[in-house]
């Protein structure tokens, strides 16, 4: 299973699209939103948690369809399905690889983008913690959506339609945690919910995704 993880990481780094594209998209959202809403920095400060969370979510979405589609196209998914690696483990490893190339860099980049969005100083800690707790759920839910749509010719749009509603709770708790933390209110409840969603997704969603993949390979 470690082999799958290292292979996916290698592939993501070599093909270039993995690290760079998602981050660049995140940056673009953080730059374009102030341009769209005007130059008042107090407004930016209030919107920053939401914009950063929404940006993280959308950049995560960008690379989801590649999780299984590439392996499906070149046949390695079929071959892996008949190999000793259990399907659930495969899904978990691929989600983890996706998180390492998108969720983790997004979490690290977010404070920098917080500066240009005039996020108050108290918010940075909560921003990083909430993203670190929440982005694993984004990758796991996304892998589920990718598993559902893997056999489809034009699955990209459908994938967003399926995955975005599933992202709602994560988005609400994530942005809420940062907002509460920024304004000095207790943010631990939201963070605990966020951690619970990630943990629950990690425990259960790989089974659902593996089931969906097996059906799609039939």
């Amino acid at each position: 299973m470690i082999a799958v993880l290292t292979r996916d990481l290698k592939l993501a780094i070599r093909s270039g699209g993995g690290f760079g594209l998602g981050l660049a998209f995140f940056l673009l959202i953080a730059v374009l939103t102030p341009l769209a809403v005007g130059a008042q920095s107090d407004l930016h400060a209030r919107m920053a948690p939401g914009i950063l969370w929404l940006g993280a979510l959308l950049s995560c979405l960008l690379s989801l369809d590649r999780i299984f589609a590439l392996d499906y196209e070149d046949g390695s998914l079929e071959l892996l399905a008949t190999s000793p690696v259990p399907m659930e483990g495969l899904v978990a490893m691929k989600s983890l690889a996706h998180w390492i190339v998108t969720g983790l860099p997004l979490t690290l980049l977010a404070p920098v983008l917080g500066i240009i969005l005039a996020l108050p100083a108290e918010g940075y800690f909560w921003l990083v913690v909430s993203l670190a707790l929440g982005t694993p759920a984004l990758s796991l839910i996304g892998a589920f959506g990718a598993a559902l749509t893997v056999g489809l010719k034009r699955g990209g749009l459908l994938l967003s339609l399926l995955v975005l509603p599933l992202y709602v709770p994560t988005l609400i708790f994530g942005a809420e945690a940062v907002r509460a933390g920024t304004s000095g209110q207790p943010a631990t409840t939201a963070l605990m919910f966020l951690a619970a969603i990630s943990a629950g997704s990690a425990a259960l969603l790989p089974f659902a995704s593996a089931y969906a993949l097996r059906i799609n390979l039939r």
Binding site: P165, P169, I172, F173, E176, T189
Partner: peptide, 12 residues
Amino acid sequence: FALLSRYAVLFW
């Protein structure tokens, strides 16, 4: 997730 959203929205 719909159920989760329901509670998340109440929280929100």
